[in-house]
Simulated assay, not measured.
Amino acid sequence: MARILDDALIYEILSVVDEIPEGKVATYGQIARLIGRERNARLVGRVMSMAEFYGSYPYHRVVNHAGRLVPGWTEQKELLIGEGAVMKKEGYVDIKRCQWEI
């Protein structure tokens, strides 16, 4: 039976996001695995799209599996560079150098 997206699940995802250190990034899939829902990377993405309504979390540190930033969100790149993250090319963080190792 599929779990419904509720506040408990949202805060479970956001608690993982809150642990990502400055200058590091995590992928949607990585966060999904950490909460025991390895097939739900898109669910994590959906939560990230509404994270601002749940408090102050460093959701700018979440990228896709290739390190691609959120299209159209220019502040994400600025925030990551300000924390010391290394950009690989336009719109991508260097995932090999910046991925959060757990």
Rank of each mutant, 00 (worst) to 15 (best):
D6P: 03
E19M: 12
L34E: 12
D18I: 03
V62F: 00
M50F: 08
S49L: 11
V16I: 14
A2Q: 14
P58C: 10
P71T: 06
M1D: 09
Q76E: 08
R46H: 14
Q30T: 02
R37K: 13
L79R: 15
M48S: 05
C98L: 03
G29Y: 08
G36K: 08
L5H: 06
R46C: 10
Y92Q: 02
A85T: 14
R33N: 08
I20F: 05
Q99Y: 03
E83F: 06
G29S: 07
W73M: 09
V44W: 04
L79P: 06
L43V: 12
E83M: 10
K96S: 04
A41I: 04
V63R: 00
R68G: 09
R3L: 10
S15K: 14
L9R: 11
K96F: 07
R37L: 15
I4Y: 10
K77R: 15
V25S: 01
L69D: 06
V63K: 00
I4P: 01
P21E: 06
E22I: 06
I4T: 13
E90K: 06
G72D: 12
R61P: 03
V17T: 05
G36Q: 10
S49I: 06
V86D: 02
V63E: 00
I20M: 02
E19R: 15
R39T: 14
K24R: 14
S15W: 09
M48K: 05
M48V: 14
R46E: 15
V63W: 00
V17R: 07
I4H: 11
E12K: 15
V86K: 11
C98A: 01
Q30M: 10
V70E: 08
G55K: 12
V17F: 03
E75D: 12
E78Q: 14
A41C: 03
A8P: 05
E90Q: 04
V86P: 02
G45N: 05
F53D: 15
K24W: 02
H60W: 14
I10P: 03
D6E: 13
L14W: 02
R97M: 03
P21T: 08
I4M: 13
V47M: 09
I13R: 06
A26D: 01
T74D: 14
H65P: 00
G45P: 04
W73Y: 13
W73G: 00
S49G: 14
D6R: 15
G72L: 11
V86W: 02
R3M: 12
K89M: 04
Q76F: 04
Q99K: 14
G55W: 11
Y59G: 01
V25T: 06
Y59R: 08
I31Q: 02
E83N: 08
A66D: 03
V44G: 03
E90I: 05
G55E: 09
S56P: 01
A8R: 15
E22H: 05
I81Y: 00
Y54Q: 11
D7G: 07
K89A: 03
V63G: 00
L80M: 11
Y54M: 09
M50S: 07
A2T: 13
W100F: 09
K88C: 02
R3H: 11
S49H: 13
H60N: 07
S56I: 13
D7M: 12
M87N: 00
W73L: 14
I95G: 00
E52N: 13
E19D: 10
H60R: 03
D6T: 10
K88R: 12
K24Q: 09
K96G: 01
P21C: 09
P21D: 09
S56N: 13
V62P: 03
K24V: 03
R33P: 00
I35F: 05
